[in-house]
Design a protein around this nucleic acid. Structure first.
Lengths: 204, 204
DNA sequence: TCCTGCACTAAGCGCTTGCTCAGTCGACAT
DNA sequence: ATGTCGACTGAGCAAGCGCTTAGTGCAGGA
């Protein structure tokens, strides 16, 4: 039995109409950008009148925040899960890249909003997602630094290497589309290989 | 004798007031995004009244196009110059990455607009810069494919590898700021090393 | 001295924007 | 039957938007 896309993306958001607004917001924000999207676009996309948006969200910015926070929490959870499950830095990095890249390809519409529209958030809301981003970056940096210390990685600057690893993942949201090849999972694996070599590992 | 920043960025744009408008546009577009920027912001940033913008550009979109086309032409020239100067795929890729990354770091404000605001261009103008982007991507892909054929690189998919290389460069514009370390040149060199390893070269 | 043309401004037009408000409708409890 | 409450609509307001228009000032040529 298949779930609706909105329920899969935001299982804890109630009622369903709020989820439909988030989905319509994602589609519009991803295609046109936050500021080029009107509340009429969003409400229309969810099959409602403009005023209905304000039954479920106090403002257009609050809708963006709900989308952005949820997306950041999901990607952070991805990374944290890998670290909780695995110990070896090589395995950790490979799986982080595989999951992170596959998520950005599979959810490229949501990911585009998450990664490229956060500058449109009000200051307070921006700070909350910025903190989530810092936690993601710190984990990746520490995994790399771990690997350098134990000798399985060889990079001069873990900080720069972490930036590069995350850049590869984030940027997938910019260019990946429905018609892109390879599949999200396969892209994740290819990128996993590339990253391991980039970090100086000899393995395949 | 130092040149003004506008003359350095757009030496062939006349008169100087038009360059000042482009600079003000770049700053606003980079910070707030194209649609969140008003013609009053731009004109004010250039020290003029709103109407003065229309003396030099037929529309706000035309100003964005001037900025975007110029930036794409500059980065394409960067890549073409390296290919014209060097023959060895390893040297070519290293220098392309060094120059491309350094440009995106040094000119991060312009680069942000060039890389992330092109979706706001009208269709015709978008197609022109899209063609420039395709040329950049094709060159990088062919240099990598060359290296794979001659055995100095080892990647399963030159297309995917080219995407990864360009992603690293493009994404610099997203996170690099005035306060970032290392310097643009040093970052280019670090990324050059990372990319060569990513592509399966043994050298340092 | 007058004329021409360019760069620029003050004022404002028509339209769209985010958001509000008064009221409708149906589900459900009493 | 009646009352209550959450979800929703139609109409519209104040503010801000891209852009236009009429006119000013000034540099350079005849």
């Amino acid at each position: 039995m298949t779930m609706s896309l909105t329920a899969e993306l935001w299982p804890d958001v109630q009622p369903e109409a709020a989820r439909r607004l988030m989905l319509a917001g994602v589609e519009s924000f991803a295609r046109r950008g936050y500021h080029a999207t009107t509340t009429r676009d969003i409400a229309g996309g969810a099959g409602m009148s403009p005023a209905a948006l304000y039954v479920h969200f106090p403002s257009k910015a609050a809708l963006l925040f709900a989308i952005s926070r949820s997306g950041h929490e999901q990607t952070l959870a991805l990374v944290e899960d890998v670290v909780a499950r695995e110990q070896d830095p090589v395995v950790r990095i490979r799986m982080i890249v595989e999951d992170f890249v596959a998520w950005h390809a599979r959810r490229h519409t949501v990911a585009r909003v998450v990664q490229y529209e956060l500058q449109s958030l009000p200051e307070q809301e921006y700070e909350i997602v910025a903190e989530l981003r810092r936690r993601i970056e710190r984990i990746v940096r520490e995994v790399i630094a771990d690997g350098v210390e134990s000798g399985v990685f060889a990079v001069p600057e873990p900080r720069t290497a972490a930036r590069a690893v995350l850049s590869l993942g984030v940027d997938v949201a910019r260019w990946y589309t429905e018609r892109s090849r390879p599949t999200p999972t396969a892209l994740g694996q290819e990128y996993g290989e590339l990253v391991l070599r980039m970090l100086g590992t000899k393995t395949s």
